[in-house]
Amino acid sequence: MTVVKGGRGVGKTVWFQALQNPALRAVAADEYQLPILTRIEAHTGFGSERKASYPSPRTLEDLLRTYSAQDIWYTVVLAALEVPELQTGEWSNRIDWVLANPEAADNALINADREAEANGTSCRSSSPS
């Protein structure tokens, strides 16, 4: 899982939109000699558009009063990886589950990483040995 950080106006949205489109991903993969781009899955972790896959700006503001940013985003990542316990419910309950089940949460991330590597969708799997 790659998290893209950057200041306002540096192109994060443009790249994200390009990565959502298979044809544009193929062009970028060819142009930048990054064949792995043709095999990625891009997921939104935050935005102004309301989606169940991440907390809204208002919910995020509320969550930050109680939880660390790291715990919130770890939960968002695990939800994107389709950990069954994190697919529904209030975000505070999902974060509480992650905090109460650290080994299960870590194992879900490890398993997703192994699966990505086995499927050729991990950056590590495309590196020379």
Rank of each mutant, 00 (worst) to 15 (best):
Y74H: 10
A26T: 15
T44H: 11
S68V: 01
A80I: 01
A42Q: 15
L37E: 05
A29Y: 08
L78E: 05
T59H: 00
K51M: 09
L60Y: 10
E82Q: 13
H43S: 14
E90I: 00
L34Q: 13
T44F: 03
K51Q: 14
V83D: 01
G45M: 12
V27Q: 13
S68L: 00
L86Y: 07
V77N: 06
D30V: 01
S48N: 14
S92C: 00
S48C: 05
Y67L: 02
G89Y: 08
Y74T: 15
Q70K: 11
H43M: 11
P55E: 01
L78K: 04
R50Q: 13
I36A: 06
L63P: 02
S56P: 09
L86R: 06
R25H: 05
D62G: 06
K51N: 07
S68P: 02
I36K: 02
R65N: 12
S56V: 07
F46R: 10
P55Y: 00
Y67A: 02
G47Y: 06
P35N: 09
E90Q: 13
D62K: 09
T59S: 11
E31N: 08
D71W: 01
V77Y: 10
L78G: 02
T59C: 05
L63N: 07
A69T: 09
Y67M: 00
V76K: 08
Y74C: 11
R65M: 09
Q33W: 01
G45I: 15
Y67D: 05
K51V: 03
L64C: 04
T59L: 06
Y74W: 05
S68D: 10
A28N: 10
S92K: 12
I36G: 06
A42K: 06
T75Q: 09
L81K: 04
G45T: 12
P57I: 02
F46Y: 14
T59Q: 13
A69P: 01
Y54E: 00
S56T: 15
E82F: 01
